[in-house]
Amino acid sequence: MTGQTWERVPIDAQSVEAPLSQAAVFLVVAVEPDDRALAHVRETLATVDDLIKTVGFRDLAGRLSCVVGVGHDIWRRLAKTAQMPAELHPFKPIVGAKHQAPATPGDLLFHIRAERVDLCFEFERLLLAALGEAVRVVDAVSGFRYFDARDLLGFVDGTANPAGHDIPAAALVGEEDPDFAGGSYVVVQKYLHDMTGWNAAGASAQEEIIGRTKVDNVELPDAGADAQKSHKTLSTIVDEDGTEHDILRDNMPYGDPARGEFGTYFIGYSRRLWVIEKMLERMFVGDPPGRHDRLLDFSTPKTGTTFFAPSRRVLTGLCGG
């Protein structure tokens, strides 16, 4: 990140910057349309921090955390005013010449992380029990850390993540939207991989597609301006002033070998929603248009939803506190 940096994470920010974990659950729910359900959801959201303590205290080294993301439509229902984060809107579907990024429903995201699968499981179980019939589950994915932070395609994932003091500057809203400072825009997509086709492509072709070497994760040179760009290059966003804008990824592999299901759950946190949207546009439409990210020939998105993870202060306000 070559732009502005912050000295530290705002004290009331949610645990967006939590380090990569061994396990995670990505839980997306829709809130039922009646006012009674909405009131119950408010009450439950107000107890999330207490629930983290209840479960996490069983093993403090397990580093249990949960980030709550709020979608555009439910924000309007929860908030007592019309004010909302400046860039928050529903996920915009992207239609390329060959591949599409669909938009799928979802009011609330719970990004649950821990060093132990059982902590994630127990937190999810108690959370859903507390939410009860006020919500319905839209999607629930259990992710796991795969060897040395690799995806199921065999490449190290998240190499370009900001680190240390650069994380807030990349992932947390600042003075440009002061009422929502400390919050973060969140985009999630569930990808399924064609492992048969990917493996048949061979390591050399795979490295050209990703833009890094497979074994030692060394970055390969960028292609020319009009040449076919790698995934690494297409997902690097530089504005008109030459400033590179990072996002914070916490992608996780997931799958079920017995069902032939192998995938990556993409989750990106950003200070600016347009950065992730531009990244996806470059992948699906291409740069130049027509030259899409060749990774999409093997990885198909099944979901696409946008949220805002507010600071704890703003989340408390949405809960009626």
Rank of each mutant, 00 (worst) to 15 (best):
A205F: 05
E43S: 12
F307T: 08
K53I: 00
K229E: 08
S184E: 11
G290H: 12
E261R: 12
D241T: 13
P253L: 07
Y265A: 01
W198Q: 09
D250F: 10
D222G: 03
T54V: 00
A201Y: 04
V25K: 03
V55M: 09
A205N: 09
D250H: 11
F298A: 05
G286K: 09
K278W: 03
E122R: 14
R313G: 07
V186Y: 07
A169M: 10
L20P: 01
L295Q: 04
Y254P: 05
S299A: 15
T54D: 00
T243R: 06
T300Q: 12
H165Q: 09
W6H: 12
V218Q: 14
H111D: 15
G62W: 04
E207C: 12
V138P: 06
K190R: 15
T47N: 02
I11F: 06
Y146P: 06
T236C: 08
V141P: 02
Y254H: 10
A18F: 04
E175K: 06
Q228N: 07
H111R: 09
M1K: 08
Q228M: 14
A18N: 13
A200R: 15
D73M: 01
A309K: 04
R136P: 00
C66Y: 01
E124Y: 01
D139V: 01
T243F: 09
A203N: 14
H99Q: 09
T264P: 00
A46Q: 08
L109A: 11
H99M: 06
M283D: 00
V156I: 11
V285A: 02
M283L: 06
V41N: 01
C66V: 13
V29Y: 03
L88W: 02
R291L: 15
P105G: 12
G71D: 01
A171T: 13
T196F: 08
Y269D: 10
R136Q: 09
Y185S: 12
T81M: 12
D157T: 05
E219R: 13
M84Q: 13
N251I: 02
Y146F: 15
M279N: 02
A258D: 14
F180E: 02
V188T: 15
K98V: 13
P162G: 07
P33R: 06
L119A: 14
G106N: 06
L64N: 11
P93F: 03
F284V: 06
E7P: 00
I11L: 10
A163K: 15
A203Q: 15
E277C: 04
Y265K: 03
L27I: 02
V218K: 15
V188F: 03
F284G: 07
H89N: 09
R282M: 02
F26G: 01
P19M: 04
I167V: 15
G182Y: 04
D179Y: 03
F57E: 12
E87R: 13
L60V: 14
L296F: 07
S230M: 06
V141M: 10
L78Y: 01
P289K: 10
H72C: 08
G320V: 12
L127I: 08
D241C: 10
P102G: 09
K98Q: 14
G132E: 05
Q14V: 02
T159W: 04
